[in-house]
Design a protein around this nucleic acid. Structure first.
Lengths: 218, 218, 218, 218
DNA sequence: TATGAATGAGTCTTCATTCAT
DNA sequence: CATGAATGAAGACTCATTCAT
């Protein structure tokens, strides 16, 4: 540890490297397609037209590559969702917030092709490699804030009191992220080709609004 | 799916082998815990106190083992869900059917510990090894029947007409299977320890019933 | 962990395997020639006409291979030295014991071609891989017993009182093991070709007996 | 070994480079700690806060770095031992010379922390990287001169005639260098903490003087 | 019926080295 | 003067698979 003022040599800093970003993008794509555990460094390198050794040169080891992908690609993409309640909480009622949250998720997640499958595989799976990263900070906080708003909405008689407020965020994510992740399945069923993110958003909004109960019953 | 009764020489028939069933059970457990791709034959063999060679002796190769697990363990467990509408469709209105379906899923899935994670990982993931098996037969049929009932319910003014009938089954699965798969995450949040399958079933039922709209608005 | 009574399958027991012993012998030779750290499993495998994977099949990993070589080859070879004082201590005076010990070392070590260099490299070197194994048990004990005998010899006026008894064992090893390890060096010097283990033993005996002082001075 | 005064273009001359000396020092330390083969250029570079490429820039390749360390660090440190007999031979008898030589070695080697392990590892080991360098010039010469003095001492009845004169230098080195290299082992045994280089020198002197024979026998 | 022996391909990783800048 | 980028070769290790017994 010499007291030089220049950055420590021998390993590229975050800003350098022409292809560093492309390597991250490629890794992200493959992670989404095949899972993190199922994606070898060779595969990432091959796809980028590069040697596996270069990946080690840039990122040190696989875990650190995953970590970099998480910090530089996934977290930023999650930003609109993660910071959601803080941004909009003030002006909305609890019920509006729920609907707005669902719509935000759909908008964000649908616009990022790699997000749903990555979420499914690496967050939801028991040993998903992103689960600890997500569940340690961002997720509990978002859920907590949301749950609190819902509780207040119920107290104000504005939200169905029979719902479990702690499960509402889970339900929202199930209705949105899960549905988007499963789109390759239901989207290919005959007659479903025309359903897009907007259609899904409308459907989810109505379901969250009144459930299956018909208009005349309200 | 015929029951093989004859002994094919050199390869054990399905009925033979003291431990064949135990091997399948062990494989299933590991598949659920670590994913199919993440589970080596050695791991399965080790856990069963057996040689990897025995797995080949019994099942030929890994893919065929997966196939056997699918046919002999997973499909039977899915039976109650797969045959659902046929069994109960007659006596129920469309709306009741939706609720009953959700409850059936929760009951079945919650009682089979390995099901949620396997579903998430191997059905929902883009290259999940069970996806083709599921989407080729059982799934479209269940969804199709369900969708049809919902459509009729909407036509009868009994179900919220603004929902997309094709997305209702997806939503139900999202509200149930996804929630159960994510239970290790939300179940560990402070204050959530007491939520069980019944609580989830009630919550989902109410959400499907009236959404977030409060009682006085109906 | 099933309660089978047969030995756990999947890894060969110590007695089996036609070539297991040959692999250990080959490894030992290479360890002595190139050091343990400098010997790759590939090299051992190549020399034995075998795949590196077979070495993993037999021994699990490199460290365990080293351990096996230690237990099944090196320790047994060291036996005569390790058990020395216990065997002969009773009948010999302290001074005779010192001489007999030196001769035993030379006899044993000179007859095992791989021992000196292995000792030098893997015991004496700061991070030698055998050092912990040796210094944890056998070495301190042998040295301790020897030191005690020397101390008694000094008390009895039978051994040069000016020697540090704690350093005598070290000196003996230096005069013997070191000399044998260095034989490739001094043995190649012109005029030294005829020096054999017996010659070395005689020389060391005389040196330990009277040092450099000439006969007439006694 | 001429001092290069001219700048060869494209490759730094020996006098240039702020850190060249520090790199050599660092390399030497690591060589002593981990062995030459066990020390990567990256490790040396890292320790110095420098790029591996710089090492190539300065020294061309690893072997040439080793060579430079040898020429510019090790050889000079060995100077007092290498030039020993030439300096003091005239005024001393053969027997005095032996003792003085042993004391010189202990003094020199004990004061240079990296010397013993380097000697053990890289000179004594069969494929030690310094062995050819040492055995080609300096060692045979020192040994030769010493042997000759001893022979003369024996002829003069001044040195124990039963010793093999060719083995006396080897014995001296075994009693000194080996003992110092092994100090981490015996120095840690309980009760040995107080033995220092002087104590070792005294012990070796007495051993070389009269061996184990007690005073009254002389 | 079941296994021990054996392997080729592929995993992550390290290393010495090159070269344009 | 010194580095960042890049690589081929090799290291330990895992895995699915084969095959004779």
């Amino acid at each position: 540890m010499s007291h030089v003022t220049r950055k420590s040599p021998g390993r590229p800093a975050e800003s350098e490297g022409v292809q560093r970003g492309e390597l991250l993008d490629g890794a992200l794509q493959l992670f989404a397609q095949q899972g993190i555990g199922g994606t070898s460094l060779s595969a990432i390198a091959r796809q980028a037209g590069v040697t596996p050794a270069l990946l080690h040169y840039y990122f040190g080891n696989k875990e650190s590559l995953v970590d970099t992908v998480w910090r530089e690609r996934i977290l930023p993409a999650l930003q609109p969702v993660a910071g959601f309640p803080a941004q909009q909480g003030a002006e909305l009622t609890g019920r509006e917030l729920v609907l707005a949250f669902a719509q935000t998720i759909i908008r964000v997640v649908a616009s990022i092709d790699w997000l749903p499958s990555l979420w499914i595989r690496e967050v939801l799976s028991p040993d998903g490699q992103l689960r600890p990263r997500l569940t340690s900070t961002v997720l509990p906080q978002v859920i907590g804030v949301l749950t609190e708003h819902i509780r207040q909405g119920q107290a104000a008689g504005e939200i169905n009191a029979e719902l479990d407020p702690r499960l509402v965020p889970v339900s929202i994510i199930g209705l949105t992220v899960f549905a988007l992740a499963a789109r390759p399945i239901w989207g290919r069923l005959p007659g479903n080709e025309d359903i897009d993110a907007d259609g899904l958003a409308r459907h989810v909004t109505h379901l969250l609004d009144h459930g299956t109960s018909p208009a005349h019953a309200r």
